[in-house]
Simulated assay, not measured.
Amino acid sequence: MKTIKVKAPATIANLVCGFDVLGLCTEVPFDIMEVRLRDDREVIIKSADGYPLPTDPALNTAGAPLLEMIKKLDKDIGFDVIIQKNIKPGSGIGSSAASAAGAVVAANFLLNQPFTKDELVRLAMFGEKVASGVKHADNVAPCIYGGITLVRSIFPLDIIPITAPPLYVSIVHPQIEVRTADARQILRKEVLLKNAVKQWGNIAGLVAGLMKEDYGLISRSLEDVIIEPVRSVLIPGFVDVKKKCLQVGALGGGISGSGPSIFMLSADESTATLVAQEMEDVYQQLGIPAHIYKSNINCQGVTLFDETNDNHAVL
C-alpha cells in the first residue's frame, strides 16, 4: 500500500487526579488523516478543509514525529499528510495527540509495522513537544493503545492499559481557547505534602476502581486537589457544569487535559445524556457557544477509515 486513511480520535488526559499519567480514548470527535508514501525524505503537510496548519513539518504535531521516524529508519522515504482537523487545537481533548498518533500509526502500517506500540508512543511524543514544549504521553498513549492507559514512567517509557467497566463520557467544549503551554505555566511549582498524599490516594483509588469495576470507588476517586483549583479559573461555567452534572447522576469528572473542555463520566448512557444536556444548558445561559459530545470509551485507538460506510478496523 502507498496510501492509507485513518481516524485519529480525541482523548481525555489526566482523568481529574492523574495529571500527566492517566488518559482515556473516546469515539468522537476524530480527525481524518490521509498519509501517502514518498520516495524522498520529505514530509509535506496539507489541510483537507482549509484549516490553517503549520506547513513546516518540524513545527507541525503530525510532521515532527514523522521526521523522527525517518531518522530512525534511515531510508529514502517520506510522507504526504492530508489532515481534516475536526479536533481543534486548544480544545483540551487531544488535538495535538490525534495528529501525532494518527500520523505515526498510519505511517507504521504503510511500512509493514516495523515499530511497536511503545515505539510509536515515543515518536508521537515529539508532536506533543511541538504543541506544549513537553514530551508527555497521557494523550498519545490512549490514542495509540485505545481504552484507558496509565503512563507509569516516561523515561523509561512504561505504559499500562487499564481495564474498566462500561463507562460513558460526556464532553462540553466551550468555544474559547486555552493553550496547553499557557495552562502549564500557571501551575504551582511546589505542592503541600498533605495535598500530594491525597492526590496519590485518589490516583490509586481510581485505577483500583476501574479494574475492580467499582463505580462507587471510581466516583470517590475523581477528585483533584492540585491542578483543578488552579486551572478551573480559566474556564467560565466550570463550577456550575460540575455541580449540575453531579446532581443528575454523573460519577464525576473535571477539566479535560488543560481545558477548556470539561468531561464527566457516567455509568449508563441515559445518565450521560442528562449530563450532556446540563452542560449545554449552562453554556446557553452564559451565551458562550459550545460543542457537546457523548461517547463510549474507544478501546481501539487510531483505526483505518472507510469513507464509503464509516467502518473502521484495528491497525
Score class of each variant (00 low, 15 high):
Y283K: 04
D281M: 13
S266C: 12
P289E: 06
A290P: 07
D281L: 14
A267S: 14
E269A: 12
D281W: 03
E269K: 14
D268Y: 01
E269N: 11
H291N: 14
S258Y: 00
Q284M: 11
L274E: 14
D281H: 12
G259M: 00
S266V: 10
V282R: 08
T273M: 11
V282I: 14
L286E: 05
S270N: 11
F263N: 03
Q277V: 01
M279N: 02
Q284A: 13
P260W: 01
S258C: 10
Q284S: 14
S261Q: 07
Q277I: 07
S261T: 04
L265K: 05
A290Y: 07
L286I: 11
P260T: 10
L286H: 04
I262K: 04
A272P: 00
S258W: 03
P260D: 11
L265I: 09
V282S: 05
S258V: 07
Q277N: 12
A267Y: 09
S270C: 01
A267M: 08
S266A: 13
I262S: 10
Q285F: 11
L265R: 02
F263D: 04
Y283P: 01
A290M: 08
L265D: 05
A290C: 13
D268W: 02
S258M: 02
F263E: 04
S270L: 11
M279L: 10
G259F: 10
M279Y: 08
T271Q: 04
T271L: 03
L265M: 08
G287F: 05
T271E: 08
Q285G: 14
M279W: 02
P260K: 00
M264W: 06
F263M: 01
Q284E: 15
I288M: 04
Q284N: 15
S266N: 08
G287M: 06
S261G: 00
E280S: 14
E278P: 03
I262W: 03
S258K: 06
V282L: 00
P289S: 09
L265A: 02
D281V: 12
D268A: 07
T273V: 12
T271M: 00
V275K: 08
V282P: 02
L286P: 10
I262F: 04
I262T: 10
L274G: 04
M279K: 07
T271G: 05
S258H: 09
M279I: 07
E278Q: 15
E278K: 15
G287Q: 10
Q277K: 14
M279G: 01
D268H: 06
T271I: 15
